[in-house]
Design a protein around this nucleic acid. Structure first.
Length: 112
DNA sequence: ATAATGACATACA
DNA sequence: ATGTATGCCATTA
């Protein structure tokens, strides 16, 4: 597969995101250890479209809770639609109550 | 191996 | 607060 260890890591974390929650590229990158590679996470997301199984990329947004990647979806409204289906409210391409919906793998997966 | 790109993040004006 | 500039690190050409 074209997905190397790094991409696989990203996919794994994104797939671990519970429904109704969202996370940021930086948070994932930080969890992976490459804190500064927030862009790489987004880059991996680009490959996520070719990843198997598909990852819920719609649950991954930037630090502002902005749906920056919606334009990369098959249909840009799909992302909002899915998030809305998850119970996440989106306004002006931004997630409302983002702070409440925020899911940090470095914390949630480190409960123990 | 070097240069350019990228679904970001942070700093500075 | 908004806009521009630079840094980060992996992938691709």
């Amino acid at each position: 597969m074209a997905e190397d260890n790094f991409f696989e890591r990203v996919y794994e974390v994104v797939r671990l995101i519970p429904p109704g929650r969202v996370t940021s590229y930086g948070a994932i990158a930080s969890y992976l250890g490459t804190k500064g590679s927030s862009r790489i996470v987004g880059y991996a997301m680009g490959a996520a479209g070719s990843a198997t199984p598909p990852v819920p990329a719609h649950r991954v947004v930037n630090r502002q809770g902005l749906l920056t990647g919606k334009f990369h979806f098959p249909t840009f409204q799909l992302m909002e639609e899915m998030l809305a289906s998850e119970g996440i409210e989106v306004e002006d391409n931004k997630i409302k109550n983002f702070k409440e919906k925020f899911w940090d793998p470095a914390v949630e997966l480190s409960i123990d």
